[in-house]
Design a protein around this nucleic acid. Structure first.
Length: 386
DNA sequence: ACCTGGTCCCGGGCTCGGTTTT
DNA sequence: AAAACCGAGCCCGGGACCAGGT
């Protein structure tokens, strides 16, 4: 976090209103350019990537660890920086080498947004190519040929495949195969939650992330709230409490804080009061699905979820009741049968829980209530602000 | 037996670049 | 050069069928 960034944030910000200075700085779905508290892991990654700095192909890597442990934060920050060094430029000065090495390109792909072969090739190509890549009207095979040609005439590419193995994203072996089908000069760096021995892929190197330890998470939250909220919006005590509650999960902690900050702001407060923090925490279920998964859904599905979390308790009592209520709102232009099917799909994917309700009037199978498993407060706010 | 909730699957149509025809 | 057409991925709609309850 440099001085320019801090000044930039203050520009255009009305200091007389609210708690939030920079929503992105405390958001659970954005990563700061310089993450806090993962120095040793960063060093391990740089050690492993070392061959790349000598112009050789680095090994394939599997980065694993629980949700909210900083995998994406570290990799996206690191690859973001490395991409500015990479590519066709001769970049490293050294007196001991006859020829300066060319660094490979480093590309960070979110498989939530690139969950098909087509989208993966599209996003990878878009990142390494100077020309713009069409979204439609071109076949996957043509895209693969284009990517192969670009890599052949350019440099190797290290591709970070973030969020593998989620319900909406392909599994690790599939992603790796998609890359190797194009050329072996695309080196995969996969990120996932499963331990290495439970995935069907043998990378050359594995790196494990552990949950944040309490004092490290406190440090992360302190850094991010000081960048994103007004001064003293949260006490140190409150940050410690959130960290304790989040049990090492930075995503959940930031979701609770963001929710609390908006709750306070809506009430016209200038600090986060205990009641705001309680509301923020209440808006994050345990266990909680990453907000990023929700935000990667198509517009129609996000709209549907927004309508769902805006429903009254009574309308959420059963899937059919929710279907009717959602389908009858003017903002949703899906048919009732599609709404119903999508609700079941979202439940199956783990974004909603189906809780069977006890029922006395009972013919037939008892209905189930839909309970969101994602940070509802933050999602609602983001949806309304977009 | 009957009823309602839940799962699965696939045809068809939409959008939008690319390609061919006029 | 403009217009018509084609074909790619992707989304929607809906129906067939299975599960779990009285």
């Amino acid at each position: 976090m440099n001085i320019d960034d801090r000044i930039e944030r203050r520009l255009g910000y009305d200091a007389s209103a609210g708690v939030v200075v920079d929503p992105d700085a405390v958001s659970p779905v954005t990563h700061p350019p310089s993450p806090t508290g993962r120095g040793p892991d960063l060093e391990r990654l740089l050690d492993v990537l070392d061959p790349a700095f000598a112009g050789a192909l680095p090994p394939s890597i599997y980065v694993h660890g629980p949700k909210g442990s900083g995998k994406s934060a570290i990799i996206s920050a690191l690859f973001g920086r490395l991409s500015t060094y990479g590519g066709r430029r001769q970049s490293i000065q050294t007196s001991t080498r006859a020829v300066d090495p060319t660094l490979p390109e480093f590309v960070h792909v979110d498989t939530r947004r690139a969950a098909t072969r087509f989208r993966l090739y599209h996003d990878t190509l878009a990142a390494v190519s100077d020309e713009r890549v069409p979204d439609h009207g071109i076949g996957t095979a043509d895209l693969a040929a284009e990517l192969e040609a670009t890599v052949r005439t350019g440099t190797d590419v290290v591709v970070a495949l973030d969020h593998a193995n989620e319900p909406e994203t392909p599994d690790v072996p599939t992603l790796v195969e998609w890359l190797s089908d194009v050329t072996d000069r695309l080196v995969p760096v996969c990120l996932g939650r499963e331990p290495p021995d439970s995935i069907d892929w043998r990378p050359e190197v594995t790196i494990g992330f552990d949950r944040y330890r309490h004092h490290v998470l406190v440090e992360v939250l302190t850094t991010r709230t000081s960048a994103g909220l007004v001064r003293n919006a949260l006490t140190h005590e409150q940050i410690r409490d959130v960290s304790e509650w989040a049990a090492g999960d930075a995503h959940d902690a930031l979701a609770a804080i963001t929710g609390a900050a908006w709750h306070a702001e809506r009430a016209g407060a200038t600090t986060i009061r205990p009641a705001d923090l309680d509301a923020g925490i209440a808006g994050v279920p345990k266990p909680c699905v990453s907000l990023g998964r929700v935000l990667a859904l198509s517009d129609s599905r996000q709209r549907l979820l927004y309508e769902l979390v805006s429903l009254s308790e009574a309308d959420r009592e059963s899937v059919n009741a929710a279907t009717e209520a959602i389908a009858s709102t003017g903002d949703v232009d899906l048919s009732a049968s599609t709404v119903r099917r999508v609700l079941y799909e979202l439940a199956d994917a783990g974004l909603l829980d189906r809780v069977t309700v006890e029922r006395s009037d009972g013919k037939g199978r008892p209905p189930s209530r839909l309970v969101p498993r994602f940070p509802t407060l933050v999602f609602k706010e983001l949806f309304e602000r977009r």
